[in-house]
């Protein structure tokens, strides 16, 4: 499956989220998403808004899940958010922010994902989150 912006929602594209095309990151399984710093994602001067950080984390989760479902022949399921719990660990400063998901459990009806975002140093995450997603199969005839 190609990693392109078709996977991203209108909201994700609006705040400038893109899929990271660097090879070493793409090899690591779930796609790495990124957003460069701009006024659109700024909260306190020169820092990311917590809502924009959360939007990036959540988008990383949905993108990873979409790719995994497509690989399993389930690209027609509808994804519905159940909940998300964010932990803000350190200020995200005015530089590129990256995020990647790990699918902890992929069931028939629901999926559980762990999300993490970082800046220059991946070993020092800026925020983490856990999310649950409901997967609704299309009604059969």
């Amino acid at each position: 499956m190609s990693h392109n912006t078709d996977l991203l929602t209108p909201y994700a594209r609006s705040i400038g989220i893109t899929v990271c095309e660097q090879d070493e990151l793409l090899k690591s399984g779930a796609p790495v998403l990124m957003v460069t710093f701009s006024d659109t994602v700024q909260g306190r001067p020169s820092h990311f808004h917590g809502g924009a950080i959360s939007g990036l984390l959540e988008t990383a989760g949905y993108t990873a899940l979409r790719i995994q479902l497509a690989q399993g022949g389930r690209s027609d399921v509808q994804l519905k958010p159940i909940n998300i719990t964010m932990q803000f660990l350190a200020a995200a400063k005015a530089e590129t922010l990256y995020a990647q998901a790990r699918i902890t459990k992929l069931g028939r009806r629901n999926a559980n994902l762990e999300l993490e975002c970082w800046q220059a140093d991946r070993s020092r995450p800026r925020a983490t989150a856990v999310m649950n997603v409901l997967m609704v199969a299309p009604a059969s005839d």
Binding site: T9, Y11, H49, G50, G51, A52, S54, T59, P81, I84
Partner: peptide
């Protein structure tokens, strides 16, 4: 707003902006 939707087939605000709203 059209460009804040979470699914291009549904005219519903994405969950991301709702987190921003609740945080603020």
């Amino acid at each position: 707003r059209e460009d804040l939707v979470g699914d291009s087939e549904q005219h519903v605000l994405a969950s991301g902006p709702i987190i921003s709203l609740m945080d603020m």
